[in-house]
């Protein structure tokens, strides 16, 4: 019986393929892209102020609200934070990923890999709240800084306009630190994977042809790891763009996109505005991906 079934499928490769891909494709198009489309549709409706009801007719007036100075400020702030987090994570992740991929022994590599991914096993909320404690005015970080008599540095940082605040946990700096920590594994893993695919002989060849270690790094290692950096940056950038837990728990009262969306769809029931605001990160990501493609990051994929 089983033999007959497998023979049947063997003779009909297209049917086998359809059965294999059918469900995932259905999910992809109906649930995944469908919900995005619903979002887009909703962003062209508007909320009637007096009745508090959504009016389902095509209009651009919700988008006019999106481009208000307040909302543009939110976009700018969020994109700036996402960019800063991405750059910082790339700078932290690269040396670590390089070490894991090229120098660590097999055993050390396994342990480092576990160390990088272990935070992902615990709840993200727990980690955000522990950062809240670490960064608090009486928290362990301040205590540590105090120990080394570096208070003046902390005070100076917190006194900076825009990014400062009354304490680390209540300032954008603290939010930046927490973001960097939370998304770091998403940067390390792709870079490490990219570096692992660079054969050792390429690095040796570069040295053999007269390049010093720093020249080899710039001319060979960095260009080959670049797709990994871009892949990692897509994670860190988009995750920061859409997050609303960290800005809610840390930092000051100024909104980020995620928070804005959350409050519009939740408390005020303004789903069209929430949808339109969500289109912001989508557009930003599309622009980002197009720019990344221009630099040739996807050629190696």
């Amino acid at each position: 019986m089983l033999t007959r079934i497998s023979t049947y499928f063997y003779r009909r490769p297209n049917l086998s393929l359809a059965l294999l891909l059918g469900l995932p494709l259905l999910y992809m198009f109906v649930v995944y892209l469908g919900s995005l489309f619903a979002l887009l549709l909703n962003s062209f409706y508007y909320l009637e102020e007096f009745t508090g009801l959504v009016v389902r007719e095509f209009t651009l007036r919700t988008y006019v609200t999106v481009f208000s100075p307040t909302n543009l400020g939110i976009f700018g702030r969020t994109a700036g934070m996402a960019a800063a987090v991405t750059i910082a994570d790339a700078l932290i992740a690269f040396p670590l990923a390089y070490y894991i991929a090229k120098f660590a022994s097999r055993r050390a590599r396994t342990w480092l890999y576990i160390a990088v991914t272990v935070p992902l096993w615990s709840s993200y909320l727990v980690r955000v709240y522990s950062w809240k404690l670490i960064l608090a005015k009486e928290g362990i970080l301040s205590w540590f800084i105090n120990l080394f008599h570096m208070n003046f540095l902390l005070d100076w940082l917190l006194s900076l306009p825009e990014i400062g605040g009354s304490s680390l946990s209540l300032s954008p700096i603290g939010m930046f630190i927490a973001f960097c920590y939370i998304w770091l594994p998403y940067m390390i893993v792709p870079i490490q994977t990219a570096l692992e695919r660079v054969p050792k002989s390429l690095i040796e060849a570069s040295g053999d042809l007269g390049a010093s270690a720093s020249q080899t790094f710039r001319k060979v290692i960095l260009p080959l790891a670049y797709p990994g950096v871009i892949a990692g940056s897509i994670f860190t950038f988009s995750l920061t763009l859409g997050d609303f837990i960290v800005p809610q728990s840390l930092g000051n009262s100024r909104f980020f996109i995620g928070q804005a969306v959350y409050s519009h769809q939740g408390t005020s029931g303004n789903i069209p505005l929430a949808a339109a605001l969500t289109m912001g990160p989508v557009v930003i990501m599309i622009i980002y991906l197009l720019l990344a493609r221009k630099t040739g990051a996807f050629d190696a994929l």
């Binding site: 054969p199 002989s201 390429l202 040796e204 060849a205 570069s206 040295g207 053999d208 042809l209 007269g210 390049a211 010093s212 060979v220 260009p223 080959l224 190696a300």
Partner: peptide, 19 residues
Amino acid sequence: PPFQRDVNTVFQDYALFPH
């Protein structure tokens, strides 16, 4: 170090720079 030696190598896997 290799980059200061006046010898060059043809590698088993050729080691051409793919980029």
